[in-house]
């Protein structure tokens, strides 16, 4: 390349085929191998850890290897009776992030009856009234969590959707991208949250689709991988955030799919199983889910079809009769 950029080089010995069995074994034994936990299965974000692992297993059609009844019981015990919200783990404070993860897991299991749904709706709507949540982290991530949670519960009308859409649109930047708050730098992960919110609220027309999609395509580097902001290193998780956004914008064909697929496959660890952020790094369930989901968007047929808005199997979204908006080109 004539121009210097932050990128990686794929060496000759990286994995080139999809190692499904390895990933399934890796995730199934994740709760047993004591050395692996520190990164993402720690107590304070356990609910999300369960969501990442179960969704990855679902996409591989291997979810029977997960302890379903125990997971459901665990979620039930994480709901706070008073606020209605759900916490990352028993005894923690309820939080919108973990409330969403819990609802996603129960939706996949078709067991939303295991929690007090009215309580969850009360919790989510109370936050919009306070213009933020208890932790005050008012940003587009939480708008997305709120609308996704409510839509999975068929209760989107419980909040002021126009207000939520308005907030998201106020975070649109001069480069067509979105950040966390009005004026914050465009960031691919937050673009996913914003496009996802508009997809669920069926307000995608408000986007400058070509301009935004071009910015997203610019995230692809010579290695084939995607970064999240200009001049940052590629990271596998952006294969999900960029590609899912492009998929909702119906412009996924604008990226170089072959080279992206090579990069994603190179992030597998052929020995331990699982995917990492970049080739050669330590694997974790978070990147394993986004690697598999990215490959699904690229059309890999040995993985189930993933829904780009919800990051859940399309069959779950169909069963719930949800129809998140996708733009027509």
């Amino acid at each position: 390349m004539a121009f210097t950029k932050n990128d990686v080089k794929l060496s000759g010995d990286v994995p080139k085929t999809l190692l499904l069995q390895k990933h399934s074994d890796y995730l199934a034994s994740y709760g047993l191998n004591k050395d692996d936990f520190e990164y993402c299965m720690t107590e304070h974000l356990r609910m999300s850890g369960i969501y990442w692992t179960l969704t990855a297993m679902e996409l591989m059609n291997q979810s029977s290897r997960m302890p379903k009844e125990e997971i459901i019981e665990f979620i039930t015990s994480c709901q706070d009776n008073e606020s209605g919200g759900i916490s990352a783990s028993i005894g923690h404070d309820p939080h919108i992030l973990y409330t969403l993860s819990a609802v996603q897991v129960l939706a996949m299991y078709d067991r939303l009856d295991a929690i007090d749904i009215e309580g969850v709706v009360r919790f989510v709507t109370s936050m919009q009234q306070e213009d933020g949540d208890k932790w005050g982290e008012v940003d587009t991530r939480f708008s997305f969590c709120a609308v996704m949670t409510l839509s999975l519960l068929q209760q989107l009308d419980a909040i002021n959707v126009t207000k939520a859409v308005h907030f998201v649109l106020s975070c649109m930047n001069f480069d067509g991208g979105f950040g966390s708050r009005p004026g914050s730098e465009s960031h691919a992960g937050l673009i996913y949250c914003c496009v996802g919110t508009l997809s669920i609220c069926k307000r995608m027309e408000a986007l400058h689709a070509d301009e935004l999609a071009w910015w997203l395509c610019e995230r692809q580097l010579p290695s084939g991988g995607l970064n999240g902001r200009p001049e940052k290193l590629p990271d596998l998780c952006y294969s999900w955030w960029v590609m899912s956004s492009l998929s909702m914008l119906n412009r996924i064909h604008w990226v170089d799919k072959d080279n992206l697929e090579k990069f994603i496959l190179a992030c597998q660890d052929a020995e331990t199983g699982g995917f990492s952020d970049r080739p050669g790094n330590i694997t974790d369930p978070f990147h394993t889910l986004f690697g598999l989901a990215g490959l699904s968007l690229l059309g890999n047929t040995s993985i189930k079809h993933v829904n780009p808005t919800y990051c859940m199997p399309q069959e779950t979204i169909d069963r719930l009769k949800l129809e998140p908006q996708k733009l027509h080109i």
């Binding site: 709760g31 299965m41 850890g49 125990e70 019981e73 015990s77 028993i90 005894g91």
Partner: peptide, 13 residues
């Protein structure tokens, strides 16, 4: 001690 619910889903080290 940490309460993992009735049966621990994942054992945290």
């Amino acid at each position: 001690p940490e309460n993992d619910g009735p049966k621990p889903v994942v054992v945290i080290a």
